[in-house]
């Protein structure tokens, strides 16, 4: 029987593996610390990169912002000018047709036996509907045979005119009465609402 006596003190005990236990623990701590350090380093690098990009972007923004602001103002100015031009075009086209053309058409539409006593054409800013209107009012008399129907013929002639219709839509016979044996007094009227741009 062999007897082996362990004479080593407690702190003199050795781990029998290749690497001691203490080194393993320290290594584990070092790895943990290293990973933590790496994490913080990477976070730091990422933050530094973001801050550098932010700084560069800010500098670029300072340069580009005034230029873009001017172009934005130019865009708005061009839009305002276009709106003004459109409103001017709309302004001069309100009557649908120039009045000299309407008067020319009127002249050509009057039957030979009809004489006008009053011609009244107007743009009313606020008509019966509250909207601007173009109004044409005609008064006159018709003489001779079949004079009672001349006002109707006149009205038909007027309504056949494209220019007149564009000014006052359809002309209507408002009144007609016998003045003497062979003369009739009549009045005609046409109205068109001017549509305002939204």
């Amino acid at each position: 029987m062999n007897l082996q006596i362990n004479l080593l003190k407690k702190n003199e005990r050795r781990y029998q593996g290749i690497v001691s236990m203490k080194v393993m623990v320290m290594g584990a701590i070092a790895v943990f610390g290293g990973i933590l350090l790496l994490f913080f380093m990477l976070s730091g690098i990422a933050k530094v990169t973001v801050l550098a990009n932010l700084d560069r972007t800010r500098k670029e923004w300072i340069l580009q912002m005034p230029v873009s602001a001017i172009i934005r103002m130019q865009t708005e100015a061009a839009a305002l000018n276009r709106r003004t031009s459109a409103s001017l075009d709309e302004w001069s086209e309100r009557t649908g047709a120039p009045l000299h053309k309407i008067m020319r058409e009127l002249q050509g539409s009057v039957p030979a036996q009809v004489q006008l006593s009053r011609v009244y054409a107007k743009i009313i800013e606020s008509g019966s509907s509250g909207q601007p209107e173009c109004v044409l009012q005609l008064s006159g008399w018709a003489v001779g045979e079949g004079g009672d129907m001349l006002a109707v013929e006149f009205k038909r002639n007027l309504n056949n005119s494209k220019e007149l219709r564009s000014f006052c839509d359809e002309v209507r016979l408002i009144s007609s009465r016998r003045e003497t044996d062979d003369s009739w007094v009549f009045s005609l009227e046409g109205k068109r609402m001017i549509e305002e741009a939204p």
Binding site: W91, S92, T95, L99, S117, R118, V119, A121, K122, I123
Partner: peptide
């Protein structure tokens, strides 16, 4: 025809 902005707003012709 002499002015593109002019509009004849009212015309009254009496005999």
């Amino acid at each position: 025809t002499g002015n593109p902005l002019i509009v004849v707003k009212e015309l009254t012709i009496d005999e």
